[in-house]
Nucleic acid binder design. Structure first.
Lengths: 165, 165
DNA sequence: TATTGTTATACTCTATAACTATA
DNA sequence: TATAGTTATAGAGTATAACAATA
């Protein structure tokens, strides 16, 4: 049995992919309807709003986006909407630092309750406390595993701090 | 308690979304590189190849795609590539039945080992047997919950338009 | 030379609305 | 009237490659 997943694995994989697909779809609709934001844009704003200060493009990209130009594009849209500011970094003159504006914070605050409500209603409602613990532990482990061992063929330059691939 | 997720929930939610995002990205790359397929296209072919016979567009769409025109588009691409056939249904003259071709089966067979390998390496490698059981049970429950209680504002046909940007 | 970020561009995916035809 | 599917089209997201500037 070298190249088939066992049935249990297959079912788990499909259930995971479909459930998350449904969740992503629902959550994207909520963000779009209530704030005109894509999920990625929301993630960027949320990251900036919970950060102590501005972040560089590279810091901001980490884990959210898979190409540099994609982030430039999204940051441009957010800037044009007055939700973030971009400016040169004092430390490293190559870098751009991105900060959230008051309007950006307000939009996050406006959208967050509905977002949280959707997640709770769709994802957590059918789960017990021990399910929550189990799921959290499992997915954190999977995430860390995948961060550490990037998919083959992803040789693109990434990972700002640690010396990546 | 009204509009924040508890920290544990928040971490679980983020871990789930990031892990699956990484998995989707890796798996999409593998499918694209080895078979020129998107994940959705692979799903459609896989569904057809494990089906007893042809499926109607509506049957095929179920759980894979969120709009009818999207499926028409993807089916058109697959047909143009010689991977599926489309024809009128005998039972219901409104319906289109979609069947997989020999080339379609061959492509699935060609791509599947790498796909399975990626999933095993990225998702299952860091999980124990009991993790697998737990994850499978949890995600099946979440999936069924979301199927049963579709997100508000998702109406298959005719939905009032929300605000946007 | 390597890294940060932008630009230009092209391509895919998705979704809405209008349409045809069958039930 | 309701359902199955297609078309046309428009918009958003993403990625690649070439580029400029700084380390």
């Amino acid at each position: 049995m070298a190249d088939v997943l066992e049935p249990k694995q297959l079912n788990t994989y499909f259930a995971l992919m479909e459930a998350v697909s449904l969740l992503q779809h629902a959550v994207s609709q909520q963000l779009r309807a209530e704030g005109g934001l894509s999920y990625v844009q929301f993630e960027l704003l949320a990251r900036l709003s919970s950060s102590d200060g501005p972040l560089t493009m590279t810091e901001l990209a980490d884990g959210v986006v898979y190409s540099r130009s994609g982030l430039t594009h999204q940051a441009g849209l957010l800037e044009k909407a007055g939700l973030v500011t971009r400016g040169p970094s004092a430390d490293d003159h190559r870098a751009t630092v991105v900060g959230i504006t008051e309007a950006g914070r307000e939009l996050v605050a406006k959208v967050l309750p509905g977002h949280v409500d959707a997640v709770r209603r769709l994802l957590f409602a059918p789960l017990s406390t021990s399910d929550l613990d189990a799921l959290g532990g499992i997915m954190a482990r999977v995430r860390d595993h995948m961060r550490a061992e990037p998919p083959r063929s992803v040789a693109t330059r990434r990972s700002p701090k640690g010396s990546g691939a």
